[in-house]
């Protein structure tokens, strides 16, 4: 079952342990991220989850960014040099493991991230703007476990 959500409570867990404990039937993960990167830890938790899942040999089908989660896609994200760069980690995840990073086009448009002139978009190259159906259509596959961060 895929009814896991870390939306409301600050859930800190050891991702390796969590994945091994609840996932015994070779699931494929689909992540749904709804919080912006600096204001909350959700994106960092999602990244840690993805990295742990991949390291353990599980497949992450895609990561979908909705609501304020679309701010993860900004190519202008800039943190202090001694802080974790969420942008770099998303790019690495996409480049090294070919995990698609999908951005809800409606949510991105409403937040000024996606524009009608693609050259004005502030999205980093590793993110792709798609409709929500892209995410939900994947849930027809029973091996997919949707996890919200």
């Amino acid at each position: 079952m895929g009814r896991f959500c870390f939306q409301h409570k600050a859930v800190y867990f050891h991702h390796d342990y969590f994945i091994k404990r609840i996932m015994s039937d070779s699931p494929i993960f689909a992540l749904f991220i709804t919080k912006s990167p600096y204001d909350s830890r959700n994106a960092e938790s999602a990244l840690a989850f993805c990295e742990a899942a991949v390291a353990l040999g599980y497949k992450v089908k895609h990561v979908f960014f909705y609501q304020a989660g679309v701010h993860n896609s900004s190519k202008h994200l800039c943190v202090n040099t001694d802080e974790v760069s969420v942008k770099d980690r998303w790019q690495a995840l996409n480049a090294q493991h070919k995990i698609p990073l999908y951005l809800c086009v409606t949510a991105g448009t409403r937040r000024g991230i996606v524009t009608s002139h693609s050259e004005d978009d502030t999205t980093a190259a590793c993110f792709t703007s798609v409709g929500m159906s892209e995410y939900f259509a994947s849930l027809h596959d029973d091996s997919i476990k949707s996890i919200q961060f």
Binding site: M1, G2, Q67, S146, Q148
Partner: peptide, 10 residues
């Protein structure tokens, strides 16, 4: 909630 296959919370 327990019987749901997927859950999204808003």
């Amino acid at each position: 909630i327990k019987n749901a296959h997927h859950v999204l919370v808003f």
